[in-house]
Design a protein around this nucleic acid. Structure first.
Lengths: 212, 212
DNA sequence: ACCAGTGCTTGACAGTCGTCAAGTTTTTCT
DNA sequence: AGAAAAACTTGACGACTGTCAAGCACTGGT
């Protein structure tokens, strides 16, 4: 085979791989939405296929098995979710601006992406039972922790202070507030969500020491 | 029917009701252990029955359906879990004693009852998808919050200070630490658990203001 | 125009699920 | 001891699951 022919073959092969990956991603996104709607326990392959424009058999053409499919869907979640606060951090020129921007974004995504967030917590919990999810979950959890840390360390900097705890403590605290707000939001308790919104600035202040 | 006969009937009926309830509870406990082992998504009635000394059909003799059974199991969890720290609070005569006793109990139940705790988080998450669990979950969550508040408010008292946040903030913070410790414990990362143990006293101190 | 191969659908498989009716064993009361 | 009721087992049902093989439709290359 000539060099030209080889390069052409390569181009074709690459195009096919690209198409294959694109469809994989498309199906993973459909999976993500189905999971967000039904939860892990009640999501079947046929249900996922109905949320796409394909039939259920195609899933085994693009994915080895259900686990492979769901793992890919989780990775799609990660792409969406771990840079959410970065522009708030980048744009803030004062601690008040950062604090208010963070609180606004926090409760905006809470209500806007509620089903996606409940899925994340569902999958993180699955990893407590199913070892095969654990590596991906721990990786995403680490990215979420880093995201929170970028907010808190910058907040401390703008206030001329220091973070009061480790990245882990900052993360679990704010994530705990988020989980609780999500639960009450989905339960229809707007009052409880509003109370948490009022408290969130004070929680942020707990996580940084005053300027000394 | 004579009065004597009526009273006798009553006694019999009560005894039968007691027996009925006792067996219901027994089966609910078996359900609880199965759920703790497999998680909500993978727990079937036949599996539950195999963890008891009965056959799978008996479950529909004592429970209307699967939801009824699992709801009862969740209530059993509540009985076990919401008074765990009370004796630590009652016995502590100094803030250091309360703090150290709390930390010890915290990580003791983390490792000792790990499967039960992961079940709780699993069911709490189910309530994000399934409305029928929500009322029970919110009730248990409230009891857990009250339990944490008894610890933190007493801790503040012993230090001559005040709690730094609301009961909700105290609860989600400590529960967040617990969830993270549980995840890393089940993932076999003893180092991460040890680091959280080292940090927990500082987290408690974040939640109370110093004496003024 | 034809052919090969990719992409996709259809239908079937073996297994599991919750549920329940029918029947058997055990307990309880007279 | 014998009858009545409760407690429990067994087996079956329809529905649903993940998986996969067989075949149809369509595309791109020659």
């Amino acid at each position: 085979m000539t060099d030209v022919a080889e390069r052409k073959q390569d181009r074709i092969a690459r195009r096919q791989v690209d198409k294959f990956d694109a469809r994989r991603t498309e199906l993973a996104v459909a999976t993500l939405h189905t999971l967000a709607e039904l939860g892990y326990a009640r999501t079947s392959l046929r249900e996922i296929a109905q949320n796409s424009e394909f039939s259920h058999g195609v899933l085994h053409y693009y994915f080895a098995d259900k686990r492979d499919l769901i793992t890919e869907a989780v990775r799609q979640y990660e792409v969406v979710c771990v840079t959410r606060y970065d522009e708030v951090v980048a744009g803030a020129t004062s601690s008040e601006q950062l604090r208010d921007g963070f609180v606004a974004m926090f409760f905006d995504t809470l209500t806007e992406d509620a089903t996606l967030h409940r899925l994340w917590y569902d999958l993180r919990n699955q990893s407590l039972f199913d070892e095969s999810f654990r590596a991906d979950v721990l990786e995403i959890d680490g990215h979420r922790e880093a995201m929170v840390w970028r907010v808190i360390s910058r907040y401390a900097e703008l206030r001329g202070g220091e973070p009061a705890g480790s990245p882990a403590v900052a993360y679990v605290t704010l994530d705990g507030v988020f989980q609780r707000a999500l639960l009450h939001h989905l339960a229809g308790d707007a009052g409880a969500v509003a109370r948490l919104r009022d408290e969130l600035p004070a929680v942020m202040d707990l996580l940084v020491t005053d300027a000394g």
